[in-house]
Design a protein around this nucleic acid. Structure first.
Lengths: 246, 246
DNA sequence: TCGCGCGATTGACCTAGATCAAGCCGCGAT
DNA sequence: ATCGCGGCTTGATCTAGGTCAATCGCGCGA
């Protein structure tokens, strides 16, 4: 048994930002830590920042120093090429990490932009490495998070490489639904935080195609759409779109 | 300066597999380590395995225990869905790591298949985590490698989401050329280890489109193709295909 | 309250690349 | 040397989704 630590002298703001108080801790970096380990992580994470809708949390090319845990809100990340081509690489919600792309080259390789007023916790990366050298559980969990990000990207590659428009959109909706569910929200009813164009960019489609596919889903009674408000009426029906292939 | 260590009592096979002797060490995991640190890593990596052309190094669903460094040869990784859909997620060559996808779920999420007779070094993952808790440089370098994998995947997403067929193929050829160069081979002349179908799967194209694009590049004097043998005749010309967009 | 503007929808048409089909080529096995 | 076959090339046609264009309508700011 690890012996108990003296209680840390925490300022009010530190208490406020403590992971140990955060209701997202089971979704976030400090998953599965003991109380004692959690106390170490609380030391690590003591700065929070609000990011307004439309603001960048970081930009491609800017110096990498920290990763970020989303405390509340909704983000998109995108990459862009010199020639103006760009692509949304992901949408991130509460409990997910941002900034892992920056580790490899000491610079961020994409932009992270808030799609609604949001709040993030700073996780200074050098400190994270330091503490994860001491706490095996944290080290291992961090590796898992990075690995899952790679697996997720492979899933998107599969989507972009092999699926037709309606399959992509169905996958997208089911994925959102599942993530909202994991956060205690309705699996069937939610507001999209992104535009048709952003959805299209992520899915490798034009906004008109996204719009048309939504309309078709509605005609078929799979969902009801009204601007950004989505209600999923027939989850098995959406899943069925993905089966019976080739 | 690190002080010198007593010579370790290494068996012949251990000497043979030592990273410190490996001419790929500047491309591989133990990049930038001191002699002393390198000795620790040598302890970690002491099993090599030959994988024949066509054989699986690992399969999706199999238990994850180890990552692998490619000592020689050439691999592809692919993911497949229940419905038969599949997609090549990458081609890997000497000095690159395989298996990072398995960390997140204790199981591999893709298949790794040798495209020519190859040899890999086993890197037992639990031991890697252990040692990287002690050697900061190694820890940090490993994180960089994972992060770069994420960035690479974002690049593929951009390719799949926004590029036309010839742009994809040009990007592919330039990428291969650049990686061969980094390994001391000719940037302009090489043999493809994969079929048109595998290239197509990776690039989200059908094999016929790959073939036609190769032919067009040849007509335009950008490359010469003869089955798997490729000679790049005009690198700036290939790069130019990617510019002047939108 | 009104009007403006961005985002979304819908239609008509076009095109890159998929699909289908017919050879061809090079290589390994007999 | 020959056969057979997997991989590649090339042609003809088809189509999903892109492009262009016209409206619509919600939300926001004056």
């Amino acid at each position: 048994m690890p012996h108990s630590m003296p209680p840390a002298d925490l300022s009010l703001s530190a208490i406020k930002t403590a992971c140990s108080n955060c209701n997202l801790r089971e979704l976030c970096l400090p998953f599965g830590l003991s109380d004692q380990e959690m106390a170490r992580v609380d030391e690590l994470i003591n700065v929070r920042k609000r990011v307004k809708r439309g603001e960048n949390l970081y930009r491609a090319g800017s110096r990498f120093e920290s990763i970020y845990a989303i405390r509340s809100g909704f983000f998109k990340t995108d990459v862009l090429l010199e020639d103006g081509r760009d692509q949304v690489t992901g949408f991130q919600m509460a409990g997910e990490l941002l900034g892992l792309d920056g580790i490899g080259n000491e610079r961020h390789s994409c932009n992270a932009i808030a799609l609604e007023d949001s709040e993030v916790c700073y996780i200074p990366f050098a400190r994270l490495e330091e503490i994860s050298r001491e706490i095996q559980t944290l080290q291992h969990h961090f590796h898992k998070v990075m690995s899952r990000e790679i697996v997720r990207d492979h899933g998107v590659m599969l989507l972009l490489g092999t699926m037709r428009a309606e399959e992509r959109l169905s996958t997208f909706l089911l994925n959102l639904s599942q993530r909202f569910t994991a956060r205690g929200f309705s699996p069937a009813e939610f507001n999209l935080r992104m535009t048709r164009e952003e959805i299209g960019s992520y899915l490798g489609l034009k906004l008109e195609t996204v719009s048309r596919s939504f309309s078709r889903f509605q005609e078929e009674g799979l969902i009801s759409v009204q601007q950004k408000h989505i209600r999923i009426l027939n989850i098995p029906g959406l899943k069925a779109l993905l089966e019976h292939r080739n």
